[in-house]
Write a protein that binds this DNA or RNA. Structure first.
Lengths: 194, 194
DNA sequence: AAAATAAGTCAACAGCTGTTGATTTACTTC
DNA sequence: GAAGTAAATCAACAGCTGTTGACTTATTTT
């Protein structure tokens, strides 16, 4: 046995995970329609047929990429309204735990494929159920839904502009990270009080 | 000659315009990759081959849909910084002239196809050149670029959420149009002063 | 060790993609 | 009215799409 040449052990869960990881990476930088199953299979060093076999098809794969059975809620971390602006600000400047970065990547995947007829409905349901729902409940009060919408709009707008439109100089050139966070925190707060 | 049955006159500019209009409508509600040339040709009641013939291909057609030779600048209307927040607020609630609505539709088309490898570069160039450029110049001052980015982020975020994510209750249920505009104006102003 | 089950491979499928060339039709000019 | 030109049509192309079935391996169970 030569350990240098990777001998592929027959492990169903491992290959399933490899496919999922490769798909996630692809969907993170391209839209649903522009990504081919053969691209994903190639990245995962796996036969194309296995994708349809394991996930029931492209749509099922995409659904599984976006599903998060382990993490119960997308917005379980900020407990009070006061924490929300700061939390969102840290989210957009990618300052925080790996768990938070994973959350922002989730948003990017959604934003990238939201205009695809096949993937669109999946994403829209997820946004309403797992994002706007908890966020609205957290904010509470009279116009909670409107506030939640505005916060999410800013969050997604920054995501679109920085990641998809490649406008990365949100922090400016001389401004440091803390100053940038504070600026965004202020903006999110304005969305709550406007 | 029967005027009820549409007799197709052989008019090159007319068919070109029909293709352009059909393409615009398709790209307004779907992504670049998910729209087929045969869909567009069908809407325009035109043979598919004419599209590649007149526009040089799908990419050329998309470029022409987004091009605006008649309107010189996307941001020529607001003349001073003070006018910007109110102008953007009216833009997002679709209150204004047809010219303004056309501008917002432009943004939606860009947002929808920004993640397609083929269309992406065209869109990114357009955003930098025709939107961020004039807007930054208009704002002026020290951190004009940062301000412009934040404004555009909010603008696009609202566009994504309301049009693509189908979250339409930005105005709420009981709030009227004027109140809604004022709210957005306040938010845009906050982005400038934060 | 033999049988049974699971995992992976291969080839091929219909269907759709954008694009091109040759051909036919309608309109314009002389 | 005939010749010439522009516009539209038709058919077909390679290439890619996701998906399926039959087949070959490796691993586990009996």
């Amino acid at each position: 046995m030569d350990p240098t040449t990777s001998i592929k052990k027959r492990d169903a869960v491992a290959t399933r995970a490899a496919i999922l990881a490769a798909a996630r990476q692809r969907f993170l930088s391209e839209s649903y329609d522009s990504v081919g199953l053969r691209d994903i299979a190639g990245d995962a060093r796996v036969d194309v047929a296995l994708i349809s076999r394991y996930f029931g098809g492209k749509e099922g794969l995409f659904r599984d990429v976006l599903s998060h059975d382990d993490k119960p809620d997308l917005f379980r971390e900020p407990r009070t309204i006061a924490e929300v602006p700061g939390f969102l600000a840290q989210l957009v400047v990618e300052d925080g735990s790996d768990d938070r970065q994973l959350r922002m990547e989730m948003f990017i995947i959604m934003l990238r494929s939201a205009s695809s007829p096949k993937a669109g409905q999946v994403i829209r349901d997820l946004v309403h159920l797992d994002v706007l729902g908890p966020l609205t409940e957290l904010i509470g009060g009279d116009q909670a839904e409107l506030r939640a919408n505005m916060l999410l709009a800013i969050l997604m707008g920054i995501g679109v502009l920085s990641t998809i439109m490649m406008v990365d100089n949100f922090g400016g050139t001389s401004t440091d990270r803390d100053e940038c966070i504070e600026r965004f925190r202020c903006l999110f707060e304005a969305a709550l009080t406007c």
